[in-house]
Design a protein around this nucleic acid. Structure first.
Length: 264
DNA sequence: ATGGCTATGAGACATAGA
């Protein structure tokens, strides 16, 4: 079973690229971030025609997340479990959705960027992180097989950025952000990409400026974390890097895990 | 230190991204 995460940076602008990637790699579950579309402008018909049943939480202009389950070949329908990250009823940003698919709990998140730091946006990032800690602990404690995936907007270590010294004051790499990510990991999650490639330089994002992709000036910020119940089923993980080099690409590349699931 | 590029929403640039 393959589960992928892809920050598409606008589902309106990215629909052809998204459909091509779905057709080529046929993930069983695809988690999307940065829809940048209100609820009513999600291209539901096109996604269904591609063989997927979508759940989505839109928002005008920014944010927006979705979980797509491949149902064309008899795959199970996704069951929505949660919409919005618990812990702050005043938070109106669409950054979190959860669904059960084929016995796995899939959580799709878009963690706040937090720049400029320090400042109110960075404060919001850290508060959002604290709420994520609480929800993630509940998921661990449930004993369920869970994939907690998406755009974390955190560069975990110096191995995950082309030039660490350029990023020391950035909200994606500041000590507070990395500490928050480490605190999450300490609950018992497995970083699937790093677990399967311990020493390799692998990026998931390259900005649009200065030919960053051509120079491989990237960062690793899209992560798939596996709960203790699911980690033993990890087979492989990777990044569909070629997608970033196509016409009208997102600035992120799809990132995925292959799981031995259902368990034998 | 700045600016480089892309998207949305509006109908010109402002805002956000990372």
């Amino acid at each position: 079973m393959r589960i992928a995460t892809f920050n598409i940076n606008g589902i309106g602008a990215r629909l052809p690229a998204l459909l091509q990637w779905l057709d080529e790699t046929k993930p069983d579950v695809a988690c999307l971030q940065e829809l940048k579309a209100p609820q009513e402008k999600f291209p539901e018909m096109e996604i269904r025609a591609a063989g997927y049943t979508p759940l989505w939480h839109g928002q005008k202009s920014w944010n927006g997340v979705a979980i797509l389950a491949r149902t064309v070949d008899g795959g199970p329908e996704p069951q929505e479990l949660q919409r919005g990250l618990p812990g702050d009823p005043d938070d109106e940003q669409s950054r979190y959705i959860e669904a059960a698919v084929n016995g796995i709990l899939v959580a799709c998140l878009y963690l706040p960027n937090g720049n400029p730091a320090p400042g109110p946006k960075f404060d919001y990032k850290l508060k959002w992180f604290a709420r994520l800690h609480a929800r993630a602990q509940e998921l661990i404690d449930s004993g369920a097989p869970v994939v907690l995936c998406g755009d974390y907007n955190v560069i975990p270590t110096e191995l995950d950025v082309y030039k660490p010294e350029r990023w020391v004051d950035d909200a994606l790499f500041r000590p507070e952000s990395r500490a928050a990510f480490n605190q999450l990991m300490a609950q018992g999650w497995t970083d699937a990409l790093r677990a399967t490639h311990p020493d390799e330089v692998i990026y998931t994002f390259w900005d649009y400026f200065r030919n960053a992709f051509g120079r491989n000036a990237g960062i690793r910020i899209d992560h798939l974390l596996l709960s203790p119940a699911l980690a033993p089923h990890l087979k492989s993980a990777g990044v569909d890097r070629d997608v970033r080099g196509r016409e009208k690409p997102s600035d992120h590349a799809p990132t995925w895990v292959e799981l031995a699931w259902p368990a034998q």
